[in-house]
């Protein structure tokens, strides 16, 4: 991988978001239509999705759209869950290659479970994010990791932006990844309230994903929202208007 092709988080004005090369051609994934050709001739892989993470006073909200696309031109699935619980009080959004992301999440859960059984305590967010960034190295996935430490004076929420080069940046307020990240970030910039609690933050997260769904062809088909608090991870599905879907709430796992 050419180091110059490493994702440049947030600084990249390109609407295609983070890019990763893979040896394979077109894969089923949250990919958009921009399949440029990398220097060595391999097809370039881009993330086609919108995922956002917001820090609230008492937890973290993660939200994603529900579309999976082939090359960003064909909607291959309209009801995908791209937020996964990886720890009793942490979850991860995925943007990028589905196969790599699924294997990555399984591995991260195994690391978290093993740590807990061996030491009889949960991983801290520092430990989880360290492992998460280490495991991510070289994978065509750009996740957001949101989680909560118990803390001595109530829950301590943490949000991290991870990248395929093994980078880890802690965000104190909000972050977005995927092809819709620029549109979503605009919405977050305007609406985010640093003092809001988790219930007040959820509408902002939904608005950001809906805004991106309006303008980014690789994002859409509704929203999945995950609330990460010291009680655990609760996930709900919403339709294309942002309304809660009947009987569709429930935890992942």
């Amino acid at each position: 991988m050419n180091p110059n092709d490493r994702p440049t988080l947030g600084a990249d004005g390109s609407p295609t978001g983070d890019r990763f090369e893979t040896g394979a051609g077109l894969q089923d994934g949250f990919a958009d239509g921009d399949h440029g050709v990398a220097g060595d001739g391999a097809a370039e892989y881009s993330t086609g999705t919108t995922t956002v993470g917001l820090v609230a006073a008492d937890g973290v909200v993660l939200a994603t759209d529900r579309r999976a696309s082939l090359g960003g031109r064909f909607v291959s699935n309209k009801d995908v869950v791209k937020v996964e619980q990886v720890h009793p009080t942490a979850a991860l959004t995925i943007a990028g290659s589905v196969g790599a992301a699924q294997a990555y999440i399984k591995q991260l859960r195994a690391e978290s479970d093993l740590y807990r059984t061996r030491r009889d305590r949960r991983m801290s967010m520092e430990a989880l994010s360290s492992v998460a960034s280490g495991l991510l190295r070289g994978l065509p996935v750009s996740p957001l990791l949101g989680g909560v430490d118990p803390g001595t004076e109530g829950a301590e929420p943490h949000l991290y932006q991870l990248d395929g080069a093994g980078g880890r940046i802690e965000e104190s307020a909000y972050a977005a990844t995927g092809s819709g990240m620029t549109v979503a970030t605009g919405a977050l910039e305007r609406e985010y309230d640093p003092d809001a609690d988790i219930e007040a933050v959820v509408p902002t997260a939904v608005d950001a994903v809906l805004a991106a769904s309006e303008r980014d062809t690789a994002s859409g088909n509704g929203v999945v929202v995950a609330r990460v608090t010291s009680d655990g991870v609760e996930t709900e599905r919403r339709d294309g208007t942002g309304a809660l879907m009947n009987g569709a709430t429930g935890d992942i796992q």
Partner: peptide, 8 residues
């Protein structure tokens, strides 16, 4: 290196 923490 692995966890960013001092070992117990």
């Amino acid at each position: 290196l692995r966890y960013g923490e001092a070992v117990d």
